[in-house]
Design a protein around this nucleic acid. Structure first.
Lengths: 124, 124
DNA sequence: CAGTATCCCGCAGGATACTG
DNA sequence: CAGTATCCTGCGGGATACTG
């Protein structure tokens, strides 16, 4: 049991490293892509458009390390490796859905605000 | 009206830059800190422990640019500057709450999984 | 197919110093 | 107090090449 509660607003709190995982761009997209079901490495690379193999590997290893994704190797030739969410990983879908919902709902407003701001604060 | 719907899974979709805002570490903490009410620059720096003045300024400018935060300068000496969420910014609280909830709820499990993983995959 | 291994560049972001 | 302005370094992350 913990004597000290987690608080991401504190610099030294370990929970901040956990926060970093949820607020990772590729993590959000990869976990979101895995919601519909297990995917292979290449399939993921296609779904998450623009991710490099290095970043995809790195993201998947991190998710595996955190117990959010499981990596299954099927003994075949050519090899088939599938990634699927664990129960803990599926828990991440709630914040991810909220993030995606907000992004889609406010994208227009934000982009408009940006253009407006840049017009007003245009460099001479 | 948009002929093309936003899709953050597509590399070139502008919504990905909006996604980047919500998935920014300091953004989440700053907006979360502003939920309770307006705060001054220094107060924010204290609440969001560990943020450098440079990153705080940068984060606030970004939020202002995106129309999520308003900056109010009170004509006093010494100057008093207050930041508060706009309605759009308050909308970001939903994903942020979900993120914070998940972080606090799964921090223990994730940290344990990490330790376990690192033990098993220890470098020789 | 599903990676690992390198090389390398740009820039995120901290530290420090200065201003209205 | 609330910043801006520089300098500088580490590493995020892309490109490329190689392997089981």
């Amino acid at each position: 049991m913990n004597d000290i509660p987690f608080d991401p607003y504190q610099r030294a709190c370990p929970s901040r490293t956990v926060l970093d995982r949820v607020t990772d761009r590729w993590t959000v997209l990869v976990v979101g892509a895995l919601e519909a079901g297990p995917l292979r490495f290449t399939e993921l690379a296609h779904r998450v458009d623009g991710v490099s193999q290095k970043m995809l590997t790195q993201t998947l290893r991190g998710l595996e390390r955190d117990g959010l994704v499981t990596r299954t190797v099927h003994a075949e030739v050519p090899p088939r490796v599938e990634y699927h969410l664990t129960d803990a990983g599926r828990g991440m879908l709630e914040p991810i859905h909220a993030i995606e919902r907000w992004t889609l709902a406010h994208a227009d407003a934000v982009l408009t605000a940006r253009a407006e701001y840049d017009t007003v604060h245009a460099a001479s």
